[in-house]
Design a protein around this nucleic acid. Structure first.
Lengths: 223, 223
DNA sequence: GAAGAATTTGTCCGGATGGTCAGAAGCTCG
DNA sequence: CGAGCTTCTGACCATCCGGACAAATTCTTC
């Protein structure tokens, strides 16, 4: 005879319809997600262990598993939370306002993201590296559509003669690549420069160079 | 009583001084390294299993371990082999010849590398992502020195007025980032475009955009 | 063609790790 | 203050995986 009063954990309970989150739940889930982000981004999905995450979150493994029943659930949760933030700056880029300041602003935001949220960036690239098995569908829908939308904006700027003729999608790729580089390849950057982007001097040089070269590369000549 | 005629495996034998490699050794080590590259680049060090690599190499796990006694040895071997190739194009860039064709050539080579050897590129980034534990020392010596050398070349070009004033090291980072993006973020590129760089049209658009924007971004105006 | 070395395999081991489970402890609210 | 729910834990299990080993098989060489 099984123990009748036992529950199935907060996730399942909520999945069944009860929508309340207790104070303890909210706190712990937050702590767990933060810990998971750090560990997953550093060691990858397989490299991370549940014990490790639990320890960093300051709780026992079974207790962590009480909140997220499978390692995989936890990973997905962190990933989803991250993707939203990752995409946010692109959404800010609007057709009003001139291309120069819009694009410069976007690039700067991405660089700041790399500096301030390297874990998120690395978590994301780690997933993509593995072929994006957990968010393939999201990439093919959400990501694709926002890229297409913004590519449209850029294309209109080009038509108006405000930018030289470049492939908008590849331009976006270039922006992503050059900005994320400072988070994703942190170890490499650090080996060569002796410091990472968190160093103000490095950040300055990086943003001047990236913004300088990219903008010069796409703005019409008018010197 | 142990089996007296048993050997210690080819690697150890060679490490002890005997320099011969049998035909079988050469063939198998090659097969193993190829298999290891594919598996490691796809799943990362921890994600890859020795069984998996052995299977792909068409041999049993103990037999693979006969050639590389530890998973870690195998990983290091693949990584070293890869790093050399990864750095090669940069070495080709020489101070003679004009900056435009030298840099354009370099960028094109890196793009071709991304297209033709994506596994190598991904293996490398996977390692860097994890903080480059296995090749930290190599990065801090070999990589650092070649980057500094080439930064010097670029700096001289700038002094001669052949390039605009940019930070050479960050420029090199930009080139690496934009070119490797097509290998490392393959899954993302594919989600957005529906095809990867192996597609000639995509490759064309990518190289036109990357080379176009970067070169326009650093060459002095003369329109 | 046989001695001896190189290569290959089946089997096994121990540690790590994801996940389970029964119950203990803590909260909350009447 | 105590019933009933939520939260937490120690102990445990099954599986996966790197690696060891002894012996079988295949090469090489004389």
């Amino acid at each position: 005879m099984s123990y009748e009063t036992a529950t199935d954990g907060p996730d399942l309970a909520r999945a069944r319809g009860s929508k309340k989150r207790t104070r303890i739940q909210a706190e712990n889930e937050e702590r767990i997600l933060d810990a998971a982000l750090e560990v997953f981004s550093r060691y990858g999905f397989r490299g991370a262990t549940v014990d490790q995450i639990a320890e960093r979150a300051g709780m026992s493994k079974p207790n962590l598993l009480y909140y997220f029943r499978r390692k995989h659930d936890l990973y997905t949760a962190v990933l989803t939370r991250t993707l939203d933030m990752w995409l946010a700056p692109l959404g800010d880029m609007t057709e009003d306002g001139d291309p120069e300041s819009e694009l410069t602003g976007y690039i700067r935001q991405k660089l700041e993201q790399s500096r301030d949220f390297p874990h998120e960036s690395r978590l994301f690239i780690g997933e993509v590296l593995l072929g994006a098995p957990h968010l393939d569908s999201v990439l093919k829908t959400d990501l694709k559509s926002i890229v297409e939308e913004k590519a449209g904006v850029i294309r209109r700027w080009i038509e108006e003669g405000k930018l030289i003729d470049v492939d908008p999608v590849h331009l976006i790729f270039m922006i992503w690549a050059t900005t994320q580089h400072y988070a994703d390849f942190d170890a490499q950057v650090r080996s060569v420069l002796g410091r990472g982007v968190e160093d103000p001097t490095t950040f300055r040089a990086a943003s001047d160079t990236v913004i300088g070269v990219l903008m010069r590369g796409i703005l019409p000549t008018r010197d």
